[in-house]
Computed example of a mutant assay.
Amino acid sequence: MITVTADATSSQDTLKAVELHLESFDRLDALVNVVGQSDRGRIEDLDAQKLRELFDANVISALQCSQACLPALRQTRGAIVNIGSLASRVAPRFLGGYVIVKHALAGMTRQMRMECEADGVHVGLVCPGPIAGKHAPNRYGVDEESNVPADAAAPGGGAKLQLLDPVDVAQAVIRCIVKREIEIIMPPKTRLLMGINAVSPKLADWILSKKSSK
C-alpha cells in the first residue's frame, strides 16, 4: 500500500498521483471518488464563492481524478464509482449548495457512464443517506446567524432516517465495482420516494417536507 498526498482539484496533482500508483502496482482497476463537502443554509443566502468551493470539492475533484485515471482503467476494463448522496436525487430544505453540486455529480456520472461504456470502463453512482460516525457539533457551519433550523445541522439535514453503517456503504461501493451496478441508493426504502417524484413531484415534495428538517 502507498499513500500519496495530492490536491484532487489539480490536474497536475492527480496525474502525478496516478503515475506513482502505476509505478508501484503497474495497473489500476478502480477509482472511488469520495472527496466531498457538505453545506447548510437557505438558497437565498447562498454565496456564489461558497458554491464554487462546493463545486470544486464535490464535482471538479471527481472530474480531475477520473480524467487522470481513465487511460489506465481502459487497459483493465476497470470501474469508477462516484459517491453521491440522497441529495443527488431529491432536494431537501436548508442544505445550501450541497443539493446543487450533488445533482451535478449525478449528471456527470451518467454522462461519463454513457461515454466510457464503449471502452469497457464502468461508471457507477452510490447515493447514501446519512452515515453514522463522529460528527463535529458545528460540522456544517450552522449557527445562530445561519437562519436555518437547529436540526438541519444533523447528518442528513435532519432527515428522519436511521444512520447507515459505514461498513454497509463500503460494501455497496465494492458491489458497484464488482457487479458493475449503475446506481445504488441507500437505504433501499428511499427508492420509493424517487419513484413518487418521477410521477408526482408535488406529492414527493410533501412527503419530503414531513421527513426532513422544518
Score class of each variant (00 low, 15 high):
Val32Cys: 04
Gln64Glu: 15
Asn138Lys: 13
Ile100Gly: 01
Asp165His: 14
Ser88Phe: 09
Gly158Asp: 06
Gly36Arg: 02
Asp26Tyr: 04
Gln64His: 13
Ile43Cys: 01
Ala62Phe: 09
Cys69Ile: 10
Gln37Tyr: 10
Val32Gln: 01
Arg191His: 06
Leu95Met: 08
Cys127Gly: 00
Arg175Phe: 03
Lys189Asp: 14
Ile182Asn: 08
Val99Arg: 03
Ala170Cys: 07
Arg27Asn: 00
Ala150Asp: 13
Leu208Ala: 04
Ala17Leu: 10
Val167His: 12
Leu163Tyr: 15
Gly141Phe: 08
Gln37Asn: 09
Ile196Arg: 03
Ala104Asn: 09
Asp56His: 01
Gly107Phe: 03
His135Ser: 13
Ser24Glu: 05
Gln75Ile: 00
Asp168Phe: 12
Thr14Phe: 05
Asp165Ser: 14
Pro128Arg: 11
Glu144Asp: 15
Gln67Ile: 14
Gln67Glu: 14
Leu161Ser: 15
Met112Phe: 11
Val121Gln: 00
Asp205Pro: 03
Lys210His: 02
Gln162Gly: 14
Trp206Leu: 03
Ile60Thr: 13
Leu208Val: 02
Ile207Met: 04
Gln12Gly: 11
Asp151Asn: 14
Pro137Gly: 12
Ala104Ser: 11
Arg93Met: 05
Gly141Trp: 07
Pro149Ile: 09
Pro92Phe: 03
Ala106Asn: 06
Arg40Gly: 09
Gly157Lys: 01
Gly96His: 06
Asp13Ser: 13
Gly133His: 13
Gly129Pro: 11
Ala172Pro: 06
Ile2Trp: 04
Gln75Cys: 00
Gly120Glu: 02
Ser10Val: 06
Asp56Val: 05
Leu161His: 13
Leu46Glu: 12
Gly133Ser: 13
Val18Tyr: 01
Tyr140His: 12
Leu73Cys: 11
Val18His: 04
Pro149Gln: 08
Gly195Val: 05
Gly97Met: 06
Ser11Val: 12
Phe55Met: 07
Val121Met: 03
Leu51Met: 09
Gly157Gln: 01
Ala30Glu: 04
Ala154Lys: 15
Gln12Asp: 15
Ser61Pro: 00
Ala62Ser: 12
Asp143Phe: 10
Ala30Val: 02
Asn138Cys: 10
Val34Gln: 14
Thr109Met: 10
Val90Gly: 01
Leu161Glu: 15
Gln111Met: 14
Arg89His: 08
Tyr98Gly: 00
Ala118Lys: 11
